[in-house]
């Protein structure tokens, strides 16, 4: 176990560290040194085997749609966006990540290739953000 690590807001095993890197276009994943499980976002412990020996490595941003839906009854803050498409994407590096898809739901199928990109939060998203989230980018998937 890495007792010498300092988990401050710059460390990629914390959310601020992860989102800072994501804002620069780097998708960081935790990788369990014992079993290889990819952890998105990175975290100090592996959920697959319990190890706390987790390294951080950049993950490929390409993947395929594992499952998908469209949100017709959104949370109040996102009312203007609905209906919007949401998917769980299996990334080529092995992790799975949920996110919005920049496509009509009718045009999305399981197995479709997609790529992660990040954007600035909209005014409505900023309004709904917690203090510490205000500068975090929003990730989404685009068909490729």
């Amino acid at each position: 176990m890495s007792r010498d690590r300092a988990l401050d807001a710059e460390h990629p095993l914390t959310l601020p560290g992860f989102f800072d890197a994501l804002a620069d276009g780097d998708l960081l994943g935790g990788v369990c040194a014992d079993c290889g499980q990819v952890l998105l976002p990175p975290r100090p412990a592996c959920y697959a085997c319990g190890s706390r020996d987790v390294t951080v490595a950049e993950q490929p941003r390409e993947g395929t749609v594992y499952t998908h839906t469209a949100v017709h009854t959104p949370p109040p803050a996102l009312a203007d966006d609905a209906p919007y498409t949401v998917a769980v994407v299996e990334l080529d590096g092995g992790g799975r990540l949920l996110g919005r898809v920049d496509a009509d739901h009718d045009d999305v199928t399981i197995g479709d290739p997609v790529e992660l990109r990040v954007r600035e939060p909209t005014a409505a998203e900023r309004e709904a953000a917690l203090d510490y989230e205000a500068a975090w980018p929003v990730h989404l998937f685009e068909p490729r």
């Binding site: 976002p41 998908h68 949100v71 949370p75 919007y84 949401v86 975090w136």
Partner: peptide, 24 residues
């Protein structure tokens, strides 16, 4: 909160993700 809520998912849409995969 960090990934799921900020992506705008709701309870029905989360279960819809399960349902879509189950039907598949």
């Amino acid at each position: 909160r960090a990934i799921e809520q900020r992506s705008g998912v709701t309870a029905p849409s989360q279960y819809a993700l399960l349902a879509r995969r189950y039907l598949h």
